Amino acid sequence: MASIFSRIVAGEIPAHKIAETDDYLAFLDVMPTTTGHTLVIPKQEIDYLFALDDDLYTGLMAFAKKIAPAIEKAIPCKRIGVAVIGLEVPHAHVHLIPLNSMADMNFNNKMKPTQEELAQTAEKIRSFL
């Protein structure tokens, strides 16, 4: 069965997309730890980040590096944190999280933004790409 991220890539599930290439996709987390929390994925479904071949891995990180400054400009924060956990969805992904404190990386404290709030956040971030 396809992961939820593969279903987003296929257009079966809507997402608040930030940026997309032929190989990678960045979109907002619907249960973020902070406003602007973005997921960056390879479109190819591979479960574990370190199972990606070198080109796909370095391409994913380079793509994330292009997204982070736009998030930082759109969302007031001290910096963009990066997290790779890999247990919640069997599809390699990187979390880009606007940080003002270490508490912003607490995955046990999730926000529940509305679809309208997510759309506004995505638009604001895209405006800085």
Results as ranks from 00 to 15, higher is better:
Arg126Asn: 04
Val84Cys: 09
Leu87Asp: 10
Ala2His: 14
Leu39Glu: 10
His95Met: 03
Ala51Trp: 13
Leu39Trp: 13
Met111Glu: 03
Phe63Cys: 07
Lys43Val: 05
Thr58Ala: 07
Ala10Val: 07
Arg79Trp: 07
Phe107Trp: 12
Asp104Leu: 04
Ala62Val: 05
Pro14His: 13
Glu45His: 09
Ile97Thr: 13
Leu25Glu: 02
Gln44Asp: 05
Val9Gly: 02
Ile46Trp: 04
Ile67Met: 12
His37Ile: 11
Phe50Val: 08
Ile97Met: 10
His37Tyr: 04
Ile125Thr: 08
Phe107Ser: 07
Thr34Phe: 06
Val40Pro: 01
Ala15Arg: 08
Leu39Ile: 14
Pro14Leu: 14
Ser3Phe: 14
Thr38Phe: 06
Tyr57Lys: 10
Val40Ile: 06
Thr58Tyr: 11
Asp29Thr: 02
Val9Ala: 05
Phe27Ile: 12
Lys110Arg: 00
Gln44His: 05
Met61Ile: 14
Pro32Gln: 05
Ile75Ser: 01
His37Leu: 08
Pro90Gln: 11
Thr38Val: 14
Leu52Ala: 08
Pro69His: 13
Thr114Val: 01
Gln120Arg: 01
Leu56Trp: 11
His91Gln: 12
Leu87Gly: 05
Asn106Lys: 06
Phe63Glu: 07
Pro113Arg: 00
Ile8Arg: 05
Ile41Ser: 10
Asp29Met: 14
